[in-house]
C-alpha cells in the first residue's frame, strides 16, 4: 500500500515536472511571439525557448573567482525544483492535485518565496556588485508584493468559510466551490477588484516589466543573473517559464475553476473526450491570464524605480485589495442580489 502511494507520488511528480517545464517553455514562446507582434516585429518561432535551453545546456558554465561555489550552483537547482513542485498542489483542469491537504494555499505562497529566495541567494553568492544590488531589490520587491497577495487569499478564504465552510485554505476546495456562484452584487464587484489586485501582483511575482527591478537589464545588467551562464542560467530560464505557468494556473484555480465539459454535454456527447476538452480549456484560460497579466503589461509600460514598486504594492494595490475585502464583508450584511440572476 505504501509502495503504491510512493510510486504514484514519484511517477506523478516526475510527469508533472516534465509537463510544467514543457508548458512553461511553450507559454514563454507564445508570450515572446505576441510581444513581437504587438511591436510589429516578426519575433522568434514559438519553439525558440526550447532552442535557447538546448543552447545554454551546451555552453560552458563559468563560475566567478570570488563566488561561494556550492551555494552558487545549488541555488539554480533549488530555484528550478521549487518552481516545479508548485504544480503538484494546483488542480489542473479540475483534476484533484497530486498533493493536497489542509492549508496548502499558504504552502504554495511559501514555495513561490523559496524559488525567489534561491535567486537572491545565488545573486549574493556570485559576488558581483550588480548581482548584489539585484538581490537587495528582489528581497524588497518580495516583501512588498506578498502583502497584497496575502490580502487577496485571506479575503477569498474568509468568504468561502462564511458561505460554504470546509477546508477553506485548500486550493482544491476553493476550486471546487467557485465563489462567483454564491455572492451578491457587492461580492461580485469585490471579487473583480481582488482579481485585479492579483493580476497586478503577477508581474511582480514573476519579475516582469514594470516590476522587473531585480533584473533590470539597462540598469544593473540582468542583476541577479549577471554572473550566471550555461547550465545554471538554463535552469533559471526554465524556472522562469514554470513559475509563469504555475502563477497563471493558481489564478485559474482561485478565480476561474470552471470546466467547459458540463456546458458542452448539453449539445454533444463527449464521452471520454471530456477530460481532453477540459484540459484544452484550461490551457486557454492560462493563456488569457498570461496575455493580460504578463504579456500586455510588460509590453505597454516602462520599468518603475524600486521605491515606486514598494509604494505601488504597499499603498495602492494593498488599499485596492482591502477595499475588495470590505466589499466581500458588506456583501454578507447587505445581500443585494445580482441583477442578472432573477
Amino acid at each position: 500500500m505504501t509502495g503504491e502511494i510512493l510510486l504514484k507520488t514519484v511517477l506523478g511528480g516526475a510527469l508533472i515536472t516534465l509537463f510544467a517545464i514543457f508548458f512553461g517553455l511553450i507559454f514563454k514562446g507564445i508570450d515572446r511571439k505576441i510581444v513581437a507582434r504587438m511591436q510589429m516585429r516578426v519575433g522568434p518561432p514559438i519553439r525558440q525557448p526550447f532552442l535557447d535551453v538546448i543552447k545554454l545546456m551546451n555552453k560552458e558554465t563559468v563560475v566567478p573567482e570570488n563566488a561561494i561555489k556550492w551555494i552558487y550552483h545549488a541555488s539554480a537547482i533549488v530555484c528550478l525544483a521549487s518552481s516545479a513542485i508548485i504544480l503538484l498542489y494546483i488542480p489542473i483542469a479540475g483534476i484533484e492535485p497530486l498533493l493536497h491537504g489542509h492549508g496548502d494555499i499558504i504552502l504554495i505562497i511559501y514555495i513561490f518565496i523559496i524559488s525567489a529566495l534561491a535567486m537572491v541567494v545565488g545573486g549574493f553568492s556570485s559576488s558581483s556588485p550588480f548581482a548584489t544590488v539585484g538581490a537587495q531589490r528582489e528581497m524588497i520587491t518580495m516583501a512588498s508584493y506578498e502583502f497584497p497577495l496575502a490580502v487577496v487569499i485571506i479575503a477569498i478564504a474568509w468568504k468561502l468559510s462564511e458561505e460554504i465552510g470546509g477546508d477553506v485554505f485548500s486550493v482544491y476546495h476553493i476550486a471546487q466551490n467557485p465563489l462567483w456562484n454564491s455572492v451578491g452584487l457587492l461580492g461580485f464587484i469585490g471579487l473583480l477588484i481582488l482579481l485585479f489586485a492579483i493580476v497586478v501582483v503577477t508581474p511582480g511575482e514573476l519579475a516582469k516589466i514594470p516590476f522587473d527591478v531585480a533584473e533590470a537589464e539597462t540598469e544593473i545588467a540582468q542583476g541577479l543573473l549577471v554572473e550566471y551562464s550555461g547550465r545554471n542560467l538554463a535552469m533559471f530560464y526554465i524556472a522562469d517559464g514554470v513559475r509563469t505557468f504555475a502563477m497563471a494556473s493558481l489564478i485559474t484555480a482561485l478565480f476561474f475553476p470552471y470546466n467547459i465539459s458540463p456546458l458542452l454535454k448539453n449539445y454533444i456527447s463527449l464521452g471520454d473526450f471530456a477530460i481532453v476538452t477540459d484540459f484544452l480549456f484550461f490551457l486557454l484560460k492560462v493563456f488569457l491570464i498570461i496575455l493580460f497579466s504578463v504579456t500586455l503589461v510588460r509590453a505597454g509600460m516602462a520599468r518603475l524605480r524600486i521605491t515606486q514598486v514598494v509604494t505601488t504594492y504597499w499603498i495602492t494595490i494593498t488599499l485596492i485589495a482591502l477595499f475588495g475585502l470590505v466589499l466581500l464583508m458588506w456583501d454578507n450584511q447587505l445581500d443585494i442580489p445580482l441583477p442578472w440572476v432573477g
Binding site: I34, M40, V42, P44, L296
Partner: peptide, 26 residues
C-alpha cells in the same frame, strides 16, 4: 494614462513592419 496599451492592441492585428530579408527566420 497608459496610451501605449491601446496602441499595442491595435498593432497586434497588423502585419509586421519588418522587411523579411532574405528569409523569415535566419
Amino acid at each position: 494614462m497608459l496610451p501605449m496599451l491601446s496602441q499595442l492592441l491595435k498593432q497586434m492585428m497588423k502585419k509586421p513592419f519588418t522587411n523579411l530579408f532574405p528569409a523569415k527566420y535566419a
